[in-house]
């Protein structure tokens, strides 16, 4: 990681460090508090019970499916938002980010009144013999609904900072838009794409409110790990704490394995967007 040949400006004001320590403690202390309450002798038995395994397996499966769905829908959305220019673009961005701000329960209700049996689209689906509520499909839809903005936001930011110089060059060399996308744009924004997908997966894994409202709760079908934790808390707090720790561990492992912080851009100023001019000179900004 060390790049001794490049001088970097790294000084951070001490008060910023102090607040950063507070911030880190605020997140780490509750985790420590929970770890302190874990019934370690019974931990393995608690997290490997039938209902726990069913919930964990369901969570992993649905979170993976919703991540794929987020990629399929979110990548085009991010590209259109970052590169396109059309009336209502700002409104569309605001609307796409809506699931970030509305409580997940509200998202679940919205899905219910859209895809539920009595819903806007669900009524027609029901006539066609398709029933979504109370199915694993509903879980995936709920997770995708809340996770999509994470992918779109992350990828759109990367697309904007990456600029369009290379894309423009490829286009002048005769590459068609799809080829530019496949050979230039996507490889260029791959780190942002990966971190966006990881965030979406992590958010899906932790989804609770929308799932509960839209999909219900049945072991092996719709009762994901967060729902199982909430339920176990009613009768067996030990099991709830053990499962919580398991959920955190799974999320932490996935994030640690795949998430990379955005690379520092220390040697060159930000690429000027939409210019196909000569590359900027190699010079550290003083």
């Amino acid at each position: 990681m060390a790049r001794p040949d490049v001088w970097e400006f790294r000084a951070v004001p001490r008060w910023i460090v102090a607040l950063a320590v507070l911030g880190a403690l605020f997140i780490l202390l509750p985790l420590a508090g929970m770890a302190a309450r874990v019934n370690w002798p019974d931990f393995v038995a608690l997290v490997t019970s039938d209902s726990s395994r069913a919930a964990l397996f369901l969570s992993l499966r649905t979170a993976a499916a919703s991540t794929v769905l987020c990629l399929l829908l979110g990548v085009p959305l991010a590209i259109v938002l970052a590169r396109g220019s059309f009336p209502g673009q700002r409104l569309l961005r605001a609307l796409v980010l809506l699931p970030l701000v509305v409580p997940p329960v509200v998202g679940g209700l919205a899905l219910l009144y859209t895809f539920g049996r009595e819903g806007l689209i669900g009524r027609a689906l029901d006539v066609a013999g398709v029933s979504i509520a109370f199915s694993t499909t509903a879980v995936v839809m709920a997770q995708t609904f809340v996770a999509l903005p994470f992918l779109v936001l992350s990828l759109e930011g990367t697309l904007r900072t990456a600029g369009q110089r290379y894309e423009a060059v490829a286009a002048t060399l005769g590459a068609r838009p799809t080829v530019v996308l496949r050979r230039v744009t996507l490889p260029l924004v791959l780190p942002g794409l990966v971190s966006g997908a990881v965030l979406a997966f992590a958010r899906s894994l932790g989804e609770f409110g929308a799932t509960l409202t839209f999909a219900g709760s049945l072991e092996g079908v719709t009762r994901t790990l967060p729902l199982e934790i909430y339920l176990q808390r009613e009768i067996d707090p030990d099991a709830a704490i053990a499962l919580s720790l398991l959920l955190i561990a799974v999320a932490a492992v996935v994030v640690a394995l795949t998430y990379r912080a955005p690379r520092r851009r220390h040697t060159r100023p930000k690429g000027r967007p939409a210019t196909a001019g000569p590359p900027p000179r190699e010079a550290a900004t003083p």
């Binding site: 009144y113 109370f134 509960l212 709760s217 049945l218 909430y230």
Partner: peptide, 20 residues
């Protein structure tokens, strides 16, 4: 054989009110 075993009674009522 329920289609869902909810976490509280309000959720059960909600599913019936919604017509699900």
């Amino acid at each position: 054989k329920p289609v869902s075993e909810e976490l509280n009674v309000t959720s059960v009522l909600g599913k019936v009110i919604a017509g699900e």
